[in-house]
Computed example of a mutant assay.
Amino acid sequence: MLRNFSAANKVVAVFLGVILMTAFYLSTHRVPPPPLDTAIAFDPRDIQITVTGESKVQASTNHLRVRFGIQQTAWSALEAETQIQKQADKMRTALTNQGISEMMIRQINHTIQAQWEGSVNQGYLATTQFEINNWNPNSETDIIKTLLRAGANQIIDTQYMDMIDGESRKQAFKAAMDDARARAGVIAVTMGREIGDTVSVTEITSEQGKVTSPEVVKVSVVYRLKF
């Protein structure tokens, strides 16, 4: 009987010892509270909404692309090449004197072909073709006059191009932002609130893996609502 009582006392003593050691450890290893500058207070009234706005880019259609050429004939290929280069330099100078930037003039083709009549060589024909982009002339008559004065003797084609410049995209971006704000205003009214600060703005450049059209500007805007 005494032996059983002594064993029970030992078990109780061990159990109490474990409790005391645990209490001592916890009292000496407390986790400090976070500093005030990292504590975050969540306000349930803070509501943010995300809306999408879009606008079409107004392209300018008064820019012209003109393709034309110059030709020279000579008895030898070397002479034809020399003459066509001289004429090309003269033409570039004449065009720049007419106010056309050198950056707008691009050579697109150059060939030298032997001219035959039966089995007799009649000389060589050198042809160089050019392209002028972003030209904004007063009329098509001015186009012909300017090119002829510059020495062109071959008009290939003329085509008006839609051009999207930086100013057009800037205006479209502003219109897309206005569209997003108008949509956000409707949502805010239905919730009995007003539009607050703009949290973030992201231009949408692709949707479902497809690049968006350059003729449209889309933005995703996050607004904070206020009472």
Rank of each mutant, 00 (worst) to 15 (best):
residue 208 Q to P: 00
residue 66 V to R: 04
residue 226 K to E: 07
residue 31 V to D: 02
residue 145 K to P: 00
residue 64 L to G: 03
residue 148 L to M: 14
residue 92 R to H: 13
residue 49 I to T: 00
residue 106 R to Y: 08
residue 121 N to V: 07
residue 148 L to D: 11
residue 223 Y to C: 01
residue 196 G to A: 08
residue 171 Q to P: 01
residue 127 T to R: 12
residue 149 R to P: 01
residue 111 T to S: 10
residue 136 N to K: 15
residue 199 V to P: 01
residue 145 K to V: 12
residue 122 Q to R: 14
residue 195 I to Q: 02
residue 12 V to I: 15
residue 170 K to L: 11
residue 43 D to T: 06
residue 66 V to E: 04
residue 152 A to M: 09
residue 54 E to M: 05
residue 218 K to S: 04
residue 54 E to R: 06
residue 80 A to K: 05
residue 13 A to R: 13
residue 223 Y to V: 03
residue 51 V to M: 01
residue 142 D to P: 01
residue 214 P to H: 11
residue 150 A to R: 02
residue 148 L to N: 15
residue 212 T to R: 13
residue 143 I to A: 05
residue 170 K to N: 05
residue 124 Y to R: 06
residue 123 G to W: 08
residue 184 A to Y: 02
residue 193 R to I: 06
residue 181 R to V: 02
residue 186 V to Y: 07
residue 103 M to G: 01
residue 46 D to A: 09
residue 137 P to W: 11
residue 183 R to M: 04
residue 88 A to W: 11
residue 28 T to E: 10
residue 83 Q to D: 14
residue 145 K to H: 10
residue 13 A to T: 09
residue 104 M to P: 00
residue 115 Q to A: 09
residue 126 A to H: 03
residue 202 T to H: 13
residue 227 F to M: 06
residue 33 P to H: 14
residue 81 E to D: 15
residue 127 T to F: 02
residue 178 D to L: 12
residue 181 R to G: 00
residue 101 S to T: 07
residue 137 P to V: 08
residue 57 V to K: 02
residue 22 T to S: 14
residue 80 A to I: 11
residue 41 A to H: 10
residue 69 G to P: 03
residue 29 H to F: 13
residue 178 D to C: 01
residue 67 R to I: 11
residue 180 A to Q: 02
residue 38 T to P: 00
residue 161 M to Q: 13
residue 154 Q to W: 09
residue 209 G to Q: 12
residue 134 N to A: 15
residue 33 P to V: 15
residue 214 P to M: 13
residue 28 T to P: 00
residue 206 S to C: 08
residue 93 T to V: 15
residue 181 R to M: 04
residue 54 E to I: 01
residue 137 P to I: 13
residue 144 I to G: 01
residue 117 E to V: 08
residue 35 P to C: 08
residue 175 A to C: 04
residue 164 I to Q: 05
residue 220 S to K: 12
residue 73 T to D: 08
residue 169 R to D: 00
residue 141 T to G: 15
residue 134 N to Y: 15
residue 133 N to E: 10
residue 51 V to T: 04
residue 43 D to I: 06
residue 213 S to M: 11
residue 30 R to P: 02
residue 183 R to S: 09
residue 126 A to Q: 05
residue 136 N to F: 09
residue 51 V to Y: 01
residue 93 T to I: 14
residue 199 V to I: 15
residue 102 E to G: 04
residue 222 V to S: 07
residue 59 A to E: 08
residue 70 I to K: 05
residue 55 S to W: 03
residue 170 K to P: 00
residue 137 P to Q: 13
residue 173 F to N: 04
residue 62 N to Y: 10
residue 212 T to L: 14
residue 192 G to Q: 10
